Computed example of a mutant assay.
Amino acid sequence: MIQLIGRENYRTYGEIIGYDLERDPDLLLQYGISALVAGAFWQARRINRFADTDDVTAVTKLINGGTHGLQERVVYLQRAKRALGL
């Protein structure tokens, strides 16, 4: 759900969720573990403060480090909010 890059991230987020992702990175292919890592990543980077205000640019930068795909994310956010009646 969140693509981790680098051994240090596998170690860090593995420690946070209690799995040795550095030794067994394929654990991230399991939905439950992937969801735990995504949540830990989101929380560690304090992304909610920007997501709560629909700051798609800040959220994208915190997750990807840049703004590649930004326009698509804006469209997806609008669709999701419309579908949820928000």
Rank of each mutant, 00 (worst) to 15 (best):
I2D: 02
I2R: 07
Q3K: 12
Q3I: 12
L4Q: 05
L4N: 05
L4D: 06
I5H: 10
G6Y: 06
G6P: 04
R7V: 09
E8Y: 07
E8V: 06
E8M: 03
E8C: 02
N9Q: 14
N9W: 00
N9P: 01
Y10E: 02
Y10N: 00
Y10M: 02
Y10K: 00
R11L: 13
R11D: 12
R11K: 14
T12K: 15
T12A: 11
Y13R: 03
G14Y: 01
G14F: 02
E15R: 13
I16L: 09
I16H: 01
I16A: 05
I17D: 03
G18L: 11
G18P: 11
G18Q: 10
G18K: 08
Y19H: 14
D20K: 10
D20T: 07
L21K: 04
E22W: 09
E22H: 05
R23D: 07
R23S: 14
D24E: 12
D24C: 03
D26F: 05
L27V: 04
L28H: 02
L29E: 13
L29G: 11
Q30I: 07
Q30M: 04
Y31H: 06
G32E: 15
G32K: 12
I33M: 07
S34F: 00
S34R: 00
S34A: 15
L36M: 14
V37F: 02
V37S: 02
V37N: 01
V37I: 03
A38G: 06
A38D: 06
G39V: 05
G39Y: 07
A40W: 10
A40T: 11
A40Q: 09
F41D: 06
W42P: 09
Q43V: 08
Q43C: 01
Q43A: 09
A44L: 10
A44E: 12
R45I: 05
R45H: 13
R46F: 04
I47V: 14
I47R: 03
N48I: 01
N48F: 10
R49D: 15
R49Q: 15
R49C: 11
A51W: 07
A51D: 07
D52F: 04
T53P: 02
D54R: 10
D55E: 09
D55M: 05
V56N: 01
T57K: 10
T57E: 15
T60G: 02
K61M: 06
K61E: 10
L62N: 07
L62P: 00
I63N: 03
I63W: 05
N64S: 08
N64G: 00
G65P: 07
G65D: 10
G65R: 06
G65N: 08
T67S: 04
T67V: 10
T67Q: 04
H68V: 08
H68Q: 08
G69R: 01
L70H: 04
L70S: 04
E72Q: 09
E72P: 00
E72F: 01
R73D: 09
Y76M: 10
L77E: 11
L77V: 14
L77R: 14
L77M: 13
R79Q: 14
R79W: 10
R79S: 11
A80V: 12
A80L: 15
K81L: 14
R82V: 08
R82L: 12
A83P: 01
A83D: 15
A83F: 14
L84C: 15
G85D: 12
G85N: 13
L86Y: 14
